[in-house]
Design a protein around this nucleic acid. Sequence first.
DNA 1: TTTCTTTCATAGTGATTGATATGAAATTCA
DNA 2: TGAATTTCATATCAATCACTATGAAAGAAA
Lengths: 207, 207
Amino acid sequence: MKENPSSPSRKAGRPLSFDPEAALDPAMLLFWRHGYEATSLAELTQAMRVTPPSIYVAYGDKKGLFRAALKRYLTLPISPFDVIARAPTGLLAARALVEGAVIAFTGDNTPSGCLLASAAIAVSPQAEDVRNELATIRRDIETALCNKISEDAEIIAFAAGTDSATLAAYVMATIQGLSTLARDGADRNKLEKVAQFSLSLLPSVAA
Amino acid sequence: MKENPSSPSRKAGRPLSFDPEAALDPAMLLFWRHGYEATSLAELTQAMRVTPPSIYVAYGDKKGLFRAALKRYLTLPISPFDVIARAPTGLLAARALVEGAVIAFTGDNTPSGCLLASAAIAVSPQAEDVRNELATIRRDIETALCNKISEDAEIIAFAAGTDSATLAAYVMATIQGLSTLARDGADRNKLEKVAQFSLSLLPSVAA
DNA sequence: TTTCTTTCATAGTGATTGATATGAAATTCA
DNA sequence: TGAATTTCATATCAATCACTATGAAAGAAA
């Protein structure tokens, strides 16, 4: 009767025939391209080469699968939170975010634009919670950037005449806009020009 | 046998029991809030107080209804194309577009954000044509703005170091970003700050 | 009125949606 | 090996999707 919980991990029953982490890649790409609601379970199972019941065993439901894919997206290749945390200053974080967005939104092997920015913009009432989750993440990024900018002493010398909250919101708006431009067909060169023009509004760090 | 086409308008059969133009308002609001695909015909018919067959008699199909609602949206209260055409200069057109967006995206009696920017960002393969139609309109606005800016003599004195195409794309990106900020809960005051900060990158007309 | 035309409301079309019931297959534990 | 447990593939669930067949109703034309 005495169970042995000392096993490194309790295993019983038939093992999973697929890697739940690896199978997230094709799912992430589909959600990236078509968004949350417009991606059907039929498309997902076909791309993941997994049967419907396996989806529910591994991820719970469609929303669970989306959350897992989103988590994977946000750490691929680097998290925006990490970019902010690792940047020496808030303004450098802003630059790194925008410049990283240009690269990420115009990759050759990935859909155009940003999954976080476009996967659940307009949704049905049944997917409002998904929409709110993404909005919360966007706001969290904005808040992290705002805090980072506020930490900077250089903000004191910021002569452009605005506050860190507006500056952070401006950076987020720029990134959202770049995502739509990319989805509408803008190439990396065009996006780079817009990004650099946008960043020219930020005070230079050297100054 | 000789028909009389001199009638002001040929009328035969039972007349429509509703105004196809007036009924577009609730449809437009639903598409504005939930987007094209996430708005069901059941919601539309309920809000428009019209039965399904009437939809198809009056607008053809769901896409036809959406196009009609979109057309109404784009002339409400003023068309972005009109804003550009009527502005004295390209840079003033840019300002008018951005400032108009702030007002339009944070109305008390309308959904947050922009219908054109958010109604069909991520769609299923069946709605790709709708997505492309909206993308084309966005590009057309951008092109019109670019042309307007190019006409300006003041662009010669534009010392910010960019071209009219990048400037127009920057304005469009800003507007798209403002739409997402508004949808994520930003109020008019916050949007106004971001917009003015963004517009501060444009050379002043008086200069 | 009679005929013709068009829209009306009701009801339901086939297709697709996300999610599962079922039982066989595959593994761990005893 | 045998019992327990979990995932597998097949087939399908009820609900919803956009859309429409049907016939009655409402007008214009005769």
